[in-house]
Nucleic acid binder design. Structure first.
Length: 915
RNA sequence: AGGCACGUAGCUCAGGGGGAGAGCGCUACCCUGACACGGUAGAGGUCAUGAGUUCAAAUCUCAUCGUGCCUACCA
């Protein structure tokens, strides 16, 4: 006997351990079964599980568990990312607490310390993923700094270098003065700030006149090497001078003509600082201007800044402005809003800085990545993201991949001190291949972490070796990810995958939304609205949490998370638990006396009893074939049994369709609706009198078999969403073995529309009577007398056959099916298709209530009738609308009219009686 | 500056050319032998606004107003 309510804590840990012990998450390297593979978006080793991870991994787990039920050979490849800058920051902070810093430790010692840190704390998020129920193949867990993955990184770097797709050069990059490293363009977050626009006068070299420039970063003027005006600009057509003098510095700057300059901005004169602005850099190249770097790597001014040398950059800005003012060069200062770049790791203001770095030439790689999506080799879902992907790919710029940090893959390039030759190679050379000198020094920079992440779909499977795993599982089936890393990661995996594997890394990319707080705000530590998934799991159970995520994961809309919602789905889990509890109460004793197999007779030949097993599926080789819990021939079954089986099959089909289209919310909703509002609300209620009845007849046997079968299939359908509770109940259910993970998805073609129609009618009648009860304020303790007037003989027979159901569900003391014309006098009236129901109210209630109820009902009907009639009175509608639409409208009008007439007649009679 | 998404019941959201839906909340009644984490019934909406296309618009088109988000080197 099950406990009265579901307690997730008692079961989750136990079943997770069981699954792992039994190796149920493990993929087969080779198999006859279809392959299905997903690589996890590797979380940072430094990370802790947040709502985004929870959603992302729940969706992946749903897909993987679903595919296993379908008999696929599933690989869900897990792992973590070494997160260069982030991890180095964390470890450095820790060292600082101990009064240490990496420069004093030296590179080797520091890297050792990071590895130690990783051993100690790096597993946190993996453990948390397990709490979520994630069915990853943990034996294959990888790390981007693994030996194998590092080899892949090196191979890719060397290959791209020799193909000319990686180069080193001096360009403007984004520099984070706090992390003291270059960043890729993508790693800079732009934010609008209130700043100032400083207008500064640069006097002409001749002493007569000059130009006024405008800038938001006055301190960079120290590095100016020219002033530019637009050649079309009439104001500057006939200048009496060719050069100006840089205030505070005294350097003579040529005045150059540049189409780039916007005449309408500021004064139309632009200062040119090639070392600290990307546009100025380009202009500098075109005009052969010198570059003067005035900023040091730590964000202070260097010796080129003259008297400002050594000042911190913002202090310098102030000092420069002061000096300009004092010396009379500052014309005016305007408030000005502009976007400023911040480091995505530490939020420090980023400086554009001229620097020697390594770059990937992305254009040729991007072309093929675009083509792969355009040709449909890779699908992006929802499709709306395709456009974003194209936009970015079309405007892609070269990717700065070198980072001036220590934690990461050191760039395999060696420079010869003797002859300056650069050698890029797989194996560390002993001597310079050009001059033979042994004075070679390896590049100290490491690669961007995303460089190694870009290889993840194949590096984790053993590349550059041609492993069986790669053969079986590459390309992967789907990548599930948030849109925030569409460019960072997805786009780059596409480029690398296509280039090195000659095939796309994934067939589908499913892009899910962000998880936000209840008010729709992004969760962040600073706003204090972060909800910890583990806390939610502790409070409500993993299954409830997962179901919530799935139910709210509608395509293209963010998930707003609140405990209230999780609570609702905990109720659902409890409902399921109690439905199972009810079933087991009846199935367990039955099981001892009479097994479902015996009850079923030769069920394996019946139309609905057989589940295809896919006997060659290697997952079944372990002898885990589940026993049939067969069901008798549908012909022998009663209406409600046929109905629930038919509905269950429809639900299974719809749920599968939804999942395969990544409509997770639909799949969850379909199951929720069916379990609660069909199986529990109707089927179980209908079946109660039979099961509680003393008789051990065929009817009871059949119903028990159906009940068991539907519950079992429901558990399987629910398993991808709610793995723990489904496994727990599975083991309590007679006739099941091993794990629900080895069960097969119910594929049963039995469908019975006639029974479904009849059940609908039955439910309408019951609801009609209940409505009268409710509206008239009659408590369930008062049994009612009901007479139902039916024209159709078939319906009448059917109702007579199932009168116990009506009596039970509507709580009746008497039910009659009188001949036409024998209308009861004092009664409330309900009309459904094909039947008029009279609920006898003699002596029970005052009839003004019924009058009001009827009037309300008639009013509703009248409104609907008006709508349909006006449509049918429209010539154009009749002529132009499809005939089936017209027919439907006509039928509706008739039905409504008939119902109204009946109600009106009864209302009139009531009024005539004068109660 | 461009682009994308979204405005539907009190709240959170599905739906997406021919009957306005769900969950939560609310109201009334009910501890009926699975479940009060429950049951039954009910109330509640000009589907943001304005125009257009159509026999028919919540749904398609355009505009407007709001709200998010993304991309971007105008100093």
């Amino acid at each position: 006997m099950l406990d009265k309510s579901y307690d997730p804590h008692a079961v989750e840990e136990r079943w997770y351990a069981f699954w792992e012990e039994q190796g149920l998450f493990e993929a087969k390297e080779t198999s006859l079964a279809p392959s299905y593979s997903i690589v996890i978006p590797p979380p940072n080793v430094t990370g802790v599980l947040h709502m985004g991870h929870a959603l992302n991994n729940t969706l992946q787990d749903i897909l993987c568990r679903y595919r296993r039920l379908r008999g696929d050979n599933v690989l869900w490849m897990p792992g973590t990312d070494h997160a260069g800058i982030a991890t180095q920051n964390v470890v450095e902070k820790k060292l600082a607490e101990q009064g240490m810093d990496r420069h004093r430790m030296g590179r080797e010692k520091f890297i050792e310390a990071v590895w130690e840190w990783r051993e100690k704390y790096g597993g946190a998020i993996i453990h948390q993923l397990k709490r979520l129920g994630a069915s990853c193949d943990w034996k294959r867990e990888r790390f981007t700094m693994d030996e194998g993955l590092s080899r892949a990184v090196r191979k890719v770097f060397v290959t791209l270098y020799h193909e000319g797709l990686i180069y080193r050069g001096d360009y403007i990059i984004n520099w984070c003065p706090r992390c003291r490293t270059a960043l890729a363009d993508l790693e800079v977050e732009h934010e609008t700030h209130d700043g100032h626009l400083y207008h500064i006068r640069y006097p002409a070299e001749t002493g007569q006149g000059g130009l006024v420039i405008a800038t938001t970063r006055p301190e960079t003027m120290l590095g100016d090497t020219a002033v530019a005006v637009n050649p079309e600009d009439e104001r500057y057509q006939n200048l009496s001078f060719e050069a100006v003098v840089l205030p505070l510095v005294g350097r003579v700057l040529p005045v150059i003509k540049e189409n780039y300059v916007d005449q309408s901005f500021g004064t139309g004169a632009l200062k040119i600082t090639p070392a600290h602005d990307p546009n100025d850099f380009e202009i500098g190249l075109r005009h052969h201007l010198p570059s003067v770097k005035v900023l040091a790597d730590d964000g202070t001014m260097n010796s080129e800044a003259g008297r400002f040398a050594g000042m911190e950059r913002f202090a310098c800005r102030k000092a420069v402005v002061e000096a300009l003012k004092k010396e009379g060069f500052l014309e005016k200062v305007e408030p000005y809003q502009h976007a400023i770049g911040h480091c995505y790791r530490c939020q420090t203001l980023v400086e554009p800085n001229l620097s020697r770095q390594w770059f990937v030439r992305t254009k040729p790689l991007a072309e093929k990545a675009i083509e792969a999506v355009a040709s449909g080799k890779t699908r992006i879902i929802p499709e709306a993201w395709t456009r974003t992907y194209y936009d970015w790919m079309h405007n892609i710029r070269d990717w700065c991949i070198s980072r001036q940090i220590w934690w990461g893959h050191q760039i395999p390039a060696w420079t010869c001190a003797a002859c300056d030759t650069v050698t890029v190679a797989m194996d560390s050379p002993d001597a310079c291949p050009a001059c033979g000198s042994s004075q070679i020094v390896q590049e100290t920079d490491v690669l961007d972490t995303w460089f190694s992440s870009a290889l993840w779909p194949f590096s984790t499977m053993g590349w550059p070796e041609e492993t069986p795993l790669l053969k079986t599982f590459y390309p992967t089936s789907v990548l599930v990810t948030g849109f925030d890393i569409l460019f960072f990661w997805v786009a780059r995996m596409m480029m690398m995958g296509i280039h090195f594997m000659k095939d796309v890394p994934f067939h589908d990319v499913y892009v899910h939304a962000l998880v936000r707080d209840e008010a729709g705000k992004k969760m962040s530590k600073s706003s204090g609205n972060v909800i910890d998934p583990i806390e939610i799991i502790d409070r409500y159970g993993t299954d409830a949490f997962r179901f919530t995520l799935a139910a709210f994961a509608a395509q293209g809309r963010d998930v707003k998370m609140s405990e209230k919602r999780v609570e609702g789905y905990r109720h659902f889990m409890n409902k399921l638990w109690n439905a199972a509890r009810f079933c087991l109460m009846h199935l367990e004793p039955q099981q001892r006396a009479h097994s479902p197999q015996q009850a079923a007779g030769n069920a394996s030949e019946s139309k609905i009893g057989k589940i295809p097993h896919g006997g060659d599926s290697p997952l079944l080789v372990q002898g885990e074939l589940q026993k049939e819990s067969a069901v008798p021939d549908p012909e022998a079954l009663d209406l409600y049994d046929r109905w629930i089986l038919s509905r269950k099959n429809t639900v299974a089909k719809e749920m599968a369709e939804a999942l395969e289209a990544y409509r997770f919310n639909d799949a969850a909703g379909i199951l929720y609706q069916f379990v609660w509002h069909e199986f529990c609300d109707w089927y179980i209620e209908i079946v109660k009198p039979i099961l509680y009845g003393k008789a051990h007849d065929n009817k009871k046997e059949n119903t028990l078999a159906v009940l068991g079968r539907v519950l079992k299939d429901l558990l399987i359908l629910l398993h991808p969403f709610a793995p723990f509770i489904s496994e727990e109940v599975w083991h309590k259910l007679p006739g099941t073995e091993h794990s629900i993970m080895t069960a097969r998805f119910p594929e049963d073609a039995f469908s019975d529309p006639v029974s479904e129609r009849r059940m609908t009618r039955l439910m309408e009648i019951v609801s009609g009577i209940r409505n009268v009860r409710g509206e008239m304020g009659l408590p369930p303790s008062v049994p009612l007398d009901v007479a139902i007037l039916v024209q159709d003989a078939d319906l009448k027979d059917f109702l007579i056959e199932h009168e116990e159901i009506l009596i039970h569900l509507a709580k009746l003391k008497g039910l009659s099916l009188p001949a036409d014309g024998a209308k009861p006098k004092k009664a409330a009236t309900t009309v459904v298709d094909g039947a008029t129901i009279y609920t006898l109210l003699e002596g029970v209630v005052d009839f003004s209530k019924e009058e009001k109820r009827l009037e309300k009902e008639i009013g509703k009907l009248a409104d609907e009738l008006t709508a349909v009639s006006s449509k049918l009175n429209n010539e154009d509608f009749l002529r132009k609308a499809p005939s089936d639409v017209v027919k439907k409208a006509e039928e509706k009008r008739e039905l409504l009219a008939l119902r109204r007439t009946k109600l009106e007649t009864n209302l009139k009679r009531l009024q005539e009686m004068g109660h």
